[in-house]
Design a protein around this nucleic acid. Structure first.
Lengths: 255, 255
DNA sequence: CGCCATGTGGAGAGAATTTCTCCGCATGGC
DNA sequence: GCCATGCGGAGAAATTCTCTCCACATGGCG
């Protein structure tokens, strides 16, 4: 992220290492809140950030300050992605698709909903460069006008599903399969939004293909290694899971 | 649930009120584990079950006993639904669809994955009437043979998505919108699994249609009422969310 | 109807976890 | 090279959760 989320002119200039630590803390906080929820222990965040607990408290005296910081960071990235996607002139459906995959990577579903409610709307929204809702809705309307998405689909159908898909499978521990699988699932879901009579895609499904055997291995591993949920991709056949190639596939088949 | 999950001949016959309390505890435990995860405080479970904490400890001396009890209960219901679905001769796709909506209602995604890993496989699987994997996979194969699901879909594509869709939106508090929306999302997802060249459904999307305005209201409510996530269905337009009608729609359009 | 084995509730001690401060030491920047 | 700014970690205080004990209640049987 190149945006430094400048705190404005009121904040005294932070020393270089302090600024670096602040960013590490926010990154760690986003990870930990994603995995464990907004009440996760602060030591864990400090540990993952590689700083002492005192440093964390110095920079974010109350837990809510951390919540706010993470929310601002994630929302800023989200709004940037939305505006960039909306600026694409030609293919609204493809732009929307790419935006949704980005939102999935941001894991907004794991972070935001549990943080909202911890501060008032004004607190956060004031520091943000706009809102993601309008550009995304504009994309949806355009994609529908282009006949690429069925007309009775509404805004919540493309946004609220991201919240669910972006949450890690419960049981602790993020897994590489998890993330790639979410993108595969999103692709299937987006296929389901096409309008009546539109041609079905012939693109093979990307990402991990979990067949019965792989499923049973995953399950066994979950049961036996207590909390060994960090199953890696070794166990399932991979087609492809990079976003670029994914979107390229879509374009080739679809445009 | 009519199955009483009889503990076998070893257990001394429980007094009538004790048996009732035991069921209340299991029901409450399922709810609380669903909402808060497997480490949720036990007082909360006792409170929701309407019993004292001592009663809970008497029936389930260790936390894992509670985990096991809930897992057995949910898995038994799941296996029953799977076998019932697989027994339907004519329309495998419809049966699969109905089963997945049932699994969603069971909220297996919220309960099971976080409980697995808390006990060994044998502990639980011994008490179960089989396994849900085989009948469900058989359904999938049959639906593919009938040309109703694209052939490169694998078992994990229809099961793992349930785990994500059945988790409540984070931020505490279950919401009526949540549950109905998950079914709507599942329907869209299932549409995405149809094979190339199959006709698109003309069925209107059921469940809550969250348009931009409704979305903003939901968001506002989340932010302002700290943890007031129990948004009710009043704010979004409802088409229909009963499973029967949903499946009936599918059949009318699809068969 | 009445007895008693079985079951119940809740207070509270004890354990575990988490919060948050204090102070001696390190280091970036002029 | 100086010093304002920043750092780390120990540990006290607070909070939360666990689990037992015992006086009281009640279902089931004769």
């Amino acid at each position: 992220m190149s945006a430094d989320t400048d705190d404005g002119p009121t904040a005294s200039p932070l020393r270089a290492d302090a600024r670096r630590n602040r960013e590490q803390i926010l990154r760690a906080a986003r990870e930990v809140f994603t995995d464990q929820g907004p009440d996760a222990p602060l030591d864990e965040i400090a540990r993952r950030a590689g700083v002492g607990i005192a440093t964390l408290y110095r920079r974010f005296p109350r837990r809510d300050d951390l919540h706010r910081g993470v929310a601002v960071e994630v929302l800023t990235a989200l709004i940037g992605a939305a505006n960039r996607a909306a600026a694409e002139e030609d293919d609204a459906c493809l732009a929307l698709r790419r935006f949704l995959h980005t939102a999935l990577d941001l894991k907004i579903g794991s972070v935001l909903p549990s943080l909202l409610g911890r501060f008032t709307a004004d607190d956060v929204l004031d520091g943000l460069p706009g809102d993601a809702v309008e550009p995304v809705d504009a994309l949806l309307v355009r994609a529908q006008a282009q006949g690429r998405i069925r007309p009775d689909v509404v805004f919540g159908d493309i946004t609220l599903v991201i919240i669910r898909l972006s949450r890690p499978l419960p049981g602790g521990g993020r897994s590489a399969v998890d993330d790639a699988l979410a993108h595969r699932q999103l692709d299937v879901y987006l296929d389901g939004l096409r309008p009546t009579g539109s041609p079905r895609p012939t693109t093979p499904l990307g990402g991990p293909a979990v067949d019965v055997e792989a499923f049973k291995r995953l399950r066994e591993r979950l049961i036996d290694d207590a909390y060994g949920a960090r199953a890696d991709a070794d166990d399932v056949s991979h087609d492809d899971s990079r976003a670029d190639a994914r979107v390229a596939d879509v374009r080739a088949d679809d445009g």
